[in-house]
Structures are given as structure tokens and as C-alpha cells.
């Protein structure tokens, strides 16, 4: 199974952002992607009060193909913990999404650490936006990884444009860190990550549907990982991390 670890659904009149479950499915079909983790572009509690329902309804409409991640703001910690618990235990969500640039919460802050630790206790990973902006660099998120050794921390975009080497370094230091390949433009860095960390520690993602899953999958192909490693990166690792069946 080809699994995309990073896709978005949103319906925010306030921001003018519209991308549907059907948009994701179309983009996945074009790329030969069977299943994906989907999340909003806004944080709960926040600009889109229906964010949880939006993702839950999408996953219910495409139960074998879309798996929900709940994007939360740790600043509202108790409500975020309550929502995550409900989403995972009652609605079948598979992960937590954190975007520190959006929430302005440092990954090493007490609230984020408590929320990510809670995700680990619920048995789901946390996907961080991990790029070049303050609050989102690999070394910032390393603080979370160090404080939450029993939680899986996925570095989305594996460091962006200028922090990719640091992302690999952080993953080398913390065994609970996994790298996700979307958007960052260096195929050879995927190969380097697999060589240094092992193929079990890297997962394919696209940041679609506005980024192209076809192009993003092609990046993994160009990385020339070999059949076994590519199989893990493109889907096997997601199946294991999220507990989804092939």
C-alpha cells in the first residue's frame, strides 16, 4: 500500500481555504496512493470550529483511504487533550498534528510536551510542521522528542529547505523521531536519511492536495532507495505506525 502521511482537508470561510475529501481522493488516485493521513489547515479550538467534524466526516466517507489526524493548539491544553482523547478513542483518529508557527506554541513548551505525551499515551504519533521558521526547526522539536520518549514524533517536511541536515541529525539522536518527506526539494537527502537512520524511520508524505502527490512520490522514486526500503518509506512504515491494514 502507498500511504501519504500528510494531506489536508479544509473548509474555512474565514480564511477562504477550501479543499475537500474528494480533492484528496482525486489527487491520491492520480498518484497511485491508496491511503492518506488527513488533517485541517487550522488548529482547534480556533478558526474552524468544525475542524474535527470535517475530518471525521471525510474519514467516514472514505474509511479505507482517509485516516484522521487532529490539529490542535496546546495553548488551550485541557480542551485539546479532551478533543484528542475523544477523536482517538471514539472516532478512530490516528494522530495529532502540531503546527507551532500557527499556534505560536514552542515545541519545547510545557503545554506542547504534555499534549504530545498524551498522544503517546493514546498510542498515536504526532506530526509536526518542521521547516525553517522559528518555532518549527528540528532543534526546537528535538526538545519535544527528548521530553516525550514514548511518543512518536514525525518531522513533517524533514526540515524544509535549510534544516534538512539538522532534521536527520535530530532523528539520529532520538529514536522516537521519524522523518516525513513532503515539500523539501532534495531527493538525495531521502536516500541519506534512509542510509543513516534505516528505512523504518522515513515516511512518504505530499502535503497535498495543493502540493502534488504525483511529484512528491516521484521524489522518493528518484531517491533510488531499493525495493525493500522504498516499500517501507512509501507505505510499510505508515501501516506500522498508524496500525492501518494493507
Amino acid at each position: 500500500m502507498i500511504f501519504d502521511m500528510h494531506m489536508h482537508i479544509e473548509d474555512s470561510a474565514v480564511l477562504g481555504w477550501q479543499m475537500s475529501a474528494e480533492d484528496c481522493i482525486r489527487a491520491m488516485d492520480a498518484a497511485g496512493v491508496q491511503a492518506a493521513a488527513v488533517m485541517t489547515l487550522t488548529d482547534l479550538p480556533g478558526l474552524n470550529p468544525r475542524g474535527l467534524e470535517l475530518i471525521a466526516e471525510a474519514c467516514a466517507a472514505f474509511p479505507d483511504r482517509l485516516h484522521g489526524f487532529l490539529r490542535l493548539n496546546p495553548a488551550l491544553l485541557e480542551e485539546s487533550k479532551r478533543l484528542l482523547t475523544m477523536a482517538v478513542t471514539e472516532l478512530g483518529f490516528r494522530g495529532l498534528k502540531q503546527h507551532p508557527v500557527s499556534t505560536l506554541q514552542h515545541p519545547g513548551g510545557a503545554a506542547t510536551i504534555e499534549l504530545v505525551r498524551h498522544a503517546g499515551e493514546l498510542g498515536v504519533p504526532t506530526l509536526f510542521h518542521c521547516g525553517d521558521e522559528p518555532l518549527s526547526t528540528p532543534l526546537s522539536i528535538a526538545e519535544t522528542a527528548a521530553a516525550c520518549p514514548d511518543s512518536v514524533v514525525i518531522l513533517g517536511h524533514m526540515g524544509g529547505y535549510f534544516h534538512v541536515d539538522e532534521a536527520i541529525d535530530v532523528a539520529e539522536q532520538f529514536p522516537n523521531v521519524v522523518l516525513e518527506t513532503s515539500a523539501m526539494p532534495y531527493p538525495e537527502k531521502i536516500r541519506e536519511a534512509v542510509q543513516r537512520l534505516g528505512p523504518e524511520r522515513v515516511v512518504f508524505g505530499s502535503d497535498g492536495p495543493v502540493s502534488s502527490p504525483v511529484l512528491e512520490r516521484h521524489k522518493v522514486v528518484i531517491a533510488s532507495l531499493g525495493e525493500e526500503a522504498a516499500g517501507l518509506v512509501l507505505g510499510g512504515n505508515a501501516e506500522r505506525l498508524l496500525g492501518v491494514a494493507a
Binding site: 526539494p185 531527493p187 538525495e188 504525483v214 511529484l215 516521484h218 521524489k219 528518484i222
Partner: peptide, 14 residues
């Protein structure tokens, strides 16, 4: 800085 094959694919696949 970037990879020729991948950068060409950006245009081919758009």
C-alpha cells in the same frame, strides 16, 4: 543545489 531530474519533473507534471 537541486536535482535536475526532479526539477524537470516539476514542470512535466504540472
Amino acid at each position: 543545489v537541486f536535482t535536475m531530474a526532479y526539477e524537470r519533473a516539476r514542470v512535466d507534471l504540472a
